[in-house]
Amino acid sequence: MRVQQAQYSIREMIQERKQKKRIQIERFIPSILSLTAAVSILTTLGIVFTLIFETITFFKEVSVSEFFTADKWYPFAEAASYGVMPLVLGTLKITMIAALVAVPIGLATAIYLSEYASEKTRRVIKPILEILAGVPTIVYGFFALTFVTPVLRSIFPSLEMFNALSPGLVVGIMITPMIASLSEDALVSVPRTMREGALALGSTKLEVTLKVVLPAAISGIVASIVLALSRAIGETMIVSVAGGSTPSLNMDVTTSIQTMTAYIVQVSTGDAGYGTTIYYSIYAVGMTLFLFTLVMNLLAQYISRKVREEY
């Protein structure tokens, strides 16, 4: 009799609970949370539509063909010319120099940490790389302008005060930790058994690394490099502080340049009013920049997903 009563009361309890308001809340929680998740999608939509609409406004005043084919970017001149190529070339110069610094050093660091270093060394080096990755870019910009440029000028006297070389090198330093740590992840994830197999056949550690581990991790490494270069393309403060503001269509790295990002900064800190052609031009340049980085990010994702080898 007492047992039956107990069962009844439990059933009653469940019934009672279901009617409580807090159980009703349970059903609304997922929708509320999905709203917060929607914010990230709205952000993307906001970025895309902002860039598209303002770029369209820009192209009402400047023809598309001028934007892509004109060889001068002189928005502030009396006879303004809006050819984006000099800005793109400035960005590519920085990215190339950065890649020349960051790819070998970052990759070598990754190899040393994953294949040669003792646990103790790794515990010292990895936090240092994390600190380097966390230094604000304005600090790197200051470093480029007040240290790297003067040092380079004492070696190459013909170097201008503002040039592509110094910020390029410093952007390279900035993205080195990114290549190092992402590539190291890729190297570490290559299974031990593959290394041991090669060692058992009489390979030296270097041969194991270069002929077995690197090829096995190549997709992760390439993805890390693409991601880091995309970061270099979007880098703003270093090139604004040390790169100058002279967009030019040549391959000279010793003279003043202007990147896409630096142009946006120049207009933002200048006194071009809202609604002028110059105001809308930063959106067209921003759109170009966005497309560059978007393609590279998608490429990196594609590489690391499709080319990944499963062990």
Partner: peptide, 25 residues
Amino acid sequence: SFIKLNISNLAGVPSIIFGLLGLTI
């Protein structure tokens, strides 16, 4: 999976583009 792809892509958008978004919106 669209939300996830979107988040990883947002992480790769240059910070200056967020500035343009903030300026407009």
